[in-house]
C-alpha cells in the first residue's frame, strides 16, 4: 500500500482515524475536563512513553465527541521545539514578495485563530523568549500579542495550549521557569506497567503476544538501570520498534540489540549488561 503525497495547511490537519492509545490511569478524563474548562496542560514524562500519542488520541477523541460537524472538531498543531526556535517562528513573520511584504501566520497564531490544540513538544528546548510569549495565552486572558503587527488575538474557543516536558534528562540549565510552569495543569506520564506495555507492544508492533510480553519484561529490567549510568530508561517506542523487527523475522536477540542496547547507550559496560539481560530473556 503506497501512500501518495499530500499537502495540507497546518490548521487543516485532523486526525480522522483512531490512534492506538491505551489509557493507563485517569489521564483521558483529566484532559477532557481541562479542555472543557480551557485549562492549559503540561504533559510530563520521559521520552517515548506516549505523550505525543496521547495528544493525538485526545485530538481525535474530542473531535469525535463534538458530533458530526467536522468543522467544529479539534485540529492539532504540533511544534517540535528546538534551540533556535524564536518567537517569530511561532507567531509569524513578514515575507518579501516582489517589492511588497506579506504576513504569514506562525503555527501558534493559526492555532489561536482556528481553535486548535497547539502542542509544543519539548518546550524547554526552545529559547527562553518563546516561553514568555505563551504566558498571556496560558492564563485567563487567552490572548496572543502580535508585536510586529501591533495586534492582539483573542483565542477561539477550541484553542488549548499543551506543552510537553521531560523532567528527566534536562540539565540544570534547561528547566522550566516557574512562571511558565504554574500556568499549566500537569499530567504525569510514565512507562506503562508490564501488562499494559505488553498490550501496547503487541498492538503497535503487531507481534506475537509472547514476544510482546518478553519485550515488556526486558523494558522493565532495563529501566532498573536508570540512574546506574543510563540517562533514560528504554522507551515504549523502542520496545515497539524491536517488536516490529521481530515480527518481520529478525531474531529477537538481534532485534533487541539494535533497537534497544545500541540505541540506548554507547557506554560499553551498560551496553554489555543490557545485552546480557537480552540474552537472559530471549532464547537463541
Amino acid at each position: 500500500m503506497k501512500q501518495a503525497f499530500k499537502q495540507l495547511n497546518a490548521e487543516d490537519f485532523r486526525i480522522t482515524e483512531e490512534p492506538y492509545y491505551l489509557p493507563i490511569a485517569d489521564e483521558v478524563a483529566l484532559f477532557e475536563s481541562a479542555y472543557k474548562q480551557q485549562l492549559p496542560v503540561l504533559l510530563k514524562g520521559p521520552t517515548g512513553c506516549g505523550k505525543t500519542r496521547f495528544i493525538e488520541y485526545m485530538s481525535w477523541r474530542l473531535h469525535r465527541q463534538s458530533g458530526n460537524h467536522e468543522e467544529e472538531g479539534v485540529p492539532l498543531i504540533t511544534v517540535a521545539c528546538h534551540e533556535d526556535l524564536t518567537a517569530s517562528d511561532l507567531v509569524g513573520r513578514y515575507l518579501l514578495e516582489g517589492d511588497d511584504t506579506r504576513w504569514i501566520d506562525g503555527p501558534i497564531t493559526r492555532a489561536v485563530k482556528v481553535g486548535a490544540i497547539c502542542y509544543l513538544d519539548e518546550i524547554v528546548e526552545a529559547r527562553k523568549d518563546t516561553t514568555v510569549l505563551i504566558h498571556p495565552l496560558a492564563d485567563y486572558r487567552r490572548m496572543l500579542p502580535m508585536e510586529k503587527r501591533g495586534e492582539l488575538i483573542e483565542a477561539a474557543d477550541g484553542f488549548l495550549l499543551v506543552l510537553s516536558f521531560n523532567p528527566g534528562y534536562q540539565s540544570a540549565l534547561k528547566d522550566l521557569k516557574h512562571s511558565t510552569r504554574q500556568r499549566f495543569i500537569a499530567i504525569e506520564f510514565d512507562y506503562p506497567g508490564r501488562r499494559e506495555e505488553t498490550a501496547i507492544i503487541s498492538a503497535e508492533a503487531d507481534c506475537h503476544a509472547e514476544i510482546a510480553a518478553d519485550l515488556a519484561k526486558l523494558g522493565e529490567k532495563v529501566r532498573h538501570l536508570k540512574a546506574h549510568g543510563l540517562a533514560e530508561g528504554v522507551s515504549t517506542r523502542l520496545l515497539v520498534y524491536a517488536g516490529k523487527l521481530i515480527a518481520d523475522g529478525i531474531s529477537p536477540r538481534r532485534a533487541c540489540q539494535t533497537a534497544i542496547a545500541q540505541a540506548l547507550t554507547d557506554d560499553l559496560e551498560i551496553k554489555g549488561t543490557i545485552e546480557e539481560v537480552i540474552d537472559s530473556i530471549f532464547e537463541e
Binding site: H224, T273, V277
Partner: peptide, 16 residues
C-alpha cells in the same frame, strides 16, 4: 563486579 552489579540491578531492581 561492575557489569555483574548492573546485571543484578536490571534483574532485581534499583535497590538490589
Amino acid at each position: 563486579a561492575g557489569r555483574l552489579r548492573l546485571y543484578a540491578t536490571a534483574l532485581g531492581g534499583e535497590e538490589m
